Amino acid sequence: MKSYQSLQSKPTKILVIAMRYLGDVLLTTPLLHSLRQAYPDAQLDVLVFRNTASMLEGNPDINHIITTPNRPKFLDYRQLFGQLFRQYDLAVATQSGDRPFFYTLLAAPMRVAVVPPKNTTGWWKRFFVQRWTEFDDDNTHTVLQHLKLLDLINIPKCFSLVPPQIDKVPELVNRFPFLADNTGYAVLHPHPQWTYKQWTVAGWIEVGLYLKKLGLKLVLSGGPAQEEIDYVTNIQRQLPEDTINLAGQVSLAQLAYIIAQAKLYIGPDTGITHLAAATGIPVIALYGPTNPVKWAPWPAGYNKDINPFDKIGSRQLNNISLIQGKGDCVPCHLEGCDKHRQSRSQCLDTLSPERVEEAIRLALGK
């Protein structure tokens, strides 16, 4: 990474490109907030995939959200060309891929970007941007990777995540009366996008029953995909009758509000776990093949420019209790034991409910 002084003139229009999954988009919000604090009068726009824009709902740092399909067609490219072509003073690419790189070339004369390391495909991109930092997929947390871009333009760093926000709270409370009663509840999010990040159904049921014994109502969350709804419904059927199933019923911003009122959240390596971490409530995160250095939930109130978690080992830090599955290969950085996204991970299949229950007791002060 190069070191630079501040920009010679303050940009009036800034584009940040964040074209990955839901959790990745949320992890760019410290970068966005830092830019907003440094340039309070600038127009700050964000380019994301259409299916991730909801993670930025109500974000006060953003002026406009520009969306594009994951697999754009010719007409999509033509529309995006008109939206971007020389419309900005500064373009910031948070990924090293080809599309974010070309969009920065299209959008602005001043370009700051993450680029591939030397001796890898795409190393040449650094010659077409004014300021760059190399992508580190192993030893730098994603939040800190994004914030390195601020060093290139000499901007102070803000470390807090900004979850999506809603302004119609009374309507949500009327829809879900459990939000208004005095019974505390825990949110369980059992279904990640990929099988290799899943814990066991039996584990979720045992932990749910344990939380019920502690006097907490159970709330299950899940996305709108039918497979996910079916998975969560299967778990619900094996839990107490008053268990609430929100799978496919609420937006991300509504879910963020619901999680923020909970006593506890438990989830796997998925975007909703990052979302829960951003609300500040106690979070228990179940990790297996994934490298926690790079992808652990970012703890609320953690303002250090060093990785919050190590690669190996479980740890409690601020509101995050990270439980790592055991095994000599953990974390393997692979997509399950069979090395594809729909395979199982033995380190998660053998993670005992007792370890999660111990973390529950500590999180709740029991």
Rank of each mutant, 00 (worst) to 15 (best):
P40R: 05
D41K: 06
D41A: 12
A42V: 09
A42N: 04
A42G: 07
Q43C: 07
Q43Y: 05
Q43E: 01
L44V: 04
D45L: 03
D45Y: 09
V46P: 01
V46Q: 10
L47Q: 02
V48R: 03
V48G: 01
F49D: 09
F49V: 11
R50M: 06
N51T: 12
T52W: 07
T52L: 05
S54W: 07
M55H: 01
M55D: 00
M55S: 07
E57L: 07
E57H: 11
E57V: 10
E57S: 15
G58W: 12
G58L: 14
N59D: 08
N59Y: 00
H64Q: 11
H64S: 13
I65M: 10
T67K: 10
T67Q: 13
T67P: 01
T68E: 09
T68L: 10
P69L: 09
P69V: 12
N70G: 15
N70F: 13
N70M: 15
N70K: 15
R71Q: 12
P72C: 14
K73G: 14
K73W: 02
K73N: 10
F74D: 08
L75S: 14
Y77A: 13
R78N: 13
Q79G: 06
Q79A: 15
F81A: 00
F81W: 11
F81S: 03
F81C: 00
R86M: 08
R86T: 10
Q87R: 15
Q87M: 08
Y88A: 01
Y88W: 12
Y88M: 10
D89M: 05
D89V: 06
L90N: 14
V92N: 10
V92T: 04
A93L: 08
A93T: 05
T94L: 01
T94E: 03
Q95F: 14
G97Q: 12
D98L: 15
R99S: 13
R99T: 11
P100R: 10
P100A: 13
F101E: 02
F101H: 06
F102L: 15
F102H: 14
Y103T: 06
T104D: 04
L105P: 02
L106T: 06
A108D: 04
A108M: 09
A108E: 04
P109Y: 01
P109I: 07
P109D: 03
P109A: 05
M110A: 04
R111L: 07
V114H: 03
V114F: 08
V115D: 00
P116W: 03
P116I: 05
K118A: 12
N119D: 03
N119F: 05
T120W: 08
T121R: 11
T121N: 01
G122R: 00
G122K: 07
G122D: 05
W123N: 04
W123H: 06
W124E: 02
W124A: 06
K125M: 09
K125F: 02
R126H: 01
R126G: 03
F128I: 06
V129E: 00
Q130I: 07
Q130A: 10
W132K: 02
E134S: 02
